[in-house]
């Protein structure tokens, strides 16, 4: 599978930056911080639940991560999470585990890009 898309969807980022209006990026920064903090935790919990073989929780976390990543324009992460969610629904633990590392890498790059935007 090819995951070599751009790390961030800059259209989404641009829309987020305008949310506050009048060049006020406070809201954008708050959202960014929320995502970086929460998605890292969620990814960790996803890994743990996979280790424990709890596919239902893993699937739910993947679902949440999918939408929060989409909100922040991290489309690669979002897409990987969607795949993981589908695998989870079909009880394919192997495939989920296989995607986890790819997702972690995509997430690391997305977070790095977002933090760079924060400066």
């Amino acid at each position: 599978m090819d995951h070599s898309e751009d790390v961030l969807d800059m259209n989404v980022i641009a829309a987020l930056r305008e949310l506050g209006g009048d060049g006020d990026e406070t809201l954008f920064h708050e959202l960014l911080d929320l995502y970086v903090d929460d998605s890292t935790k969620q990814l960790q919990r996803l890994a743990e639940s996979l280790e424990q073989g709890d596919l239902r929780v893993a699937e739910r976390i993947a679902h949440t991560l999918k939408s929060s990543s989409a909100h922040l324009g991290a489309s690669a992460v979002s897409k990987l999470c969607l795949e993981m969610e589908q695998h989870g629904r079909e009880q394919r633990a192997m495939e989920m585990r296989a995607l986890l590392d790819v997702a972690r890498e995509a997430h690391r790059r997305a977070v790095a890009a977002l933090v760079a935007l924060r400066q």
Binding site: L27, L31, Y35, D38, S67, S68, H71, L72
Partner: peptide, 12 residues
């Protein structure tokens, strides 16, 4: 919403 990002956006 359990996702704080979505919740923040909804609220906004």
């Amino acid at each position: 919403d359990d996702d704080p990002v979505s919740l923040k956006l909804l609220s906004h």
